[in-house]
Design a protein around this nucleic acid. Structure first.
Lengths: 163, 163
DNA sequence: GTTGAAAAGAGCATACA
DNA sequence: TGTATGCTCTTTTCAAC
């Protein structure tokens, strides 16, 4: 499915979903965006089917969940083996996020979580065994997420959300 | 609110939410985890209140949404001004994610989205004006997200999800 | 804390503008 | 394409365990 042009209703809905993707009702969103609840529902389905919305995830505070060690590993993978290496990282426990960028060096960033520091250290070593040449390992301090503002400025009333 | 110990029901629920935080019913989750639907609902509420679940967000394919330029900026912010600088980045359009790590150099990673390359380049320059010394700018290639496996191995039946 | 049943509310499909 | 109505299913609530 190709690219879609988003209108202001789509953008308003996306904005509200980014503020809270689970505890908004379609009715509420419809009022904010100026459209009927059923329209909101069908727009969301369409955004899902067209691939603009890929899925929904909870934001988890791993520390509160009892996993004290949370770090970002920056590494290099040879571009020609990149995809297969990334696939195999599925077998390493504790990896919650992987980003790859279009460069030859330091082209992968891996977020790893674990209960203890030593547990996570083992996992970092496992990365080296699997073809990721680790350049740097940093403790994650904070992660801020914010709605992409183009999806909402003036398109939806801001109520109070749990930001 | 302090740390919580998660039992296997909590972990199973978190696992399922990570697979899809919006299109699972509590009944379905209850069946997979071996508990009643109402229990699932109350556990989720508790996880939200205790801060283990911080929120819910859609995963958006920005390219399909018509925003072609998507990049990761790695930079350095002076640690003593870090929090205020991060706060002020709220005024820069297109920033969707900011991570800070516990080092003195290259301690911030900023994800920026925009409609065109030049638009995003302007925004990167705006970062320099606001106290972020930009070290590197890379085009984002792919981002993989996966459920933290400790939250679910064997605790929830895997149906087929849209992973 | 967990359950199951009853009430309230949301989502979905059909029909229509 | 967007909106409204009615039907179905989900979520919420709460008394009992």
């Amino acid at each position: 499915m190709g690219k879609r042009e988003l209108d202001s209703v789509d953008k308003g809905i996306l904005y509200l979903l980014q503020r809270d993707a689970r505890n908004h009702t379609t009715k509420e969103m419809g009022e904010r965006v100026g459209v009927a609840a059923s329209t909101v529902a069908s727009r969301i389905k369409k955004l899902e089917r067209s691939g603009v919305i890929v899925g929904y995830r909870p934001r988890i505070d791993y520390e509160r969940a009892g996993y004290d060690s949370h770090l970002i590993v920056v590494g290099t993978v040879p571009t020609e083996r990149r995809d297969s290496i990334i696939d195999e990282l599925a077998e390493v426990s504790g990896i919650v996020n992987i980003r790859t960028v279009l460069t030859d060096e330091e082209n992968v960033s891996i977020e790893i979580v674990g209960a203890t520091q030593s547990e996570v250290e083992e996992r970092v070593e496992a990365l080296n065994d699997r073809g990721v040449s680790v350049v740097r390992t940093d403790l994650l301090r904070e992660e801020h997420e914010r709605p992409f503002d183009h999806f909402g400025t003036g398109l939806a009333d801001d109520g109070d959300e749990f930001a």
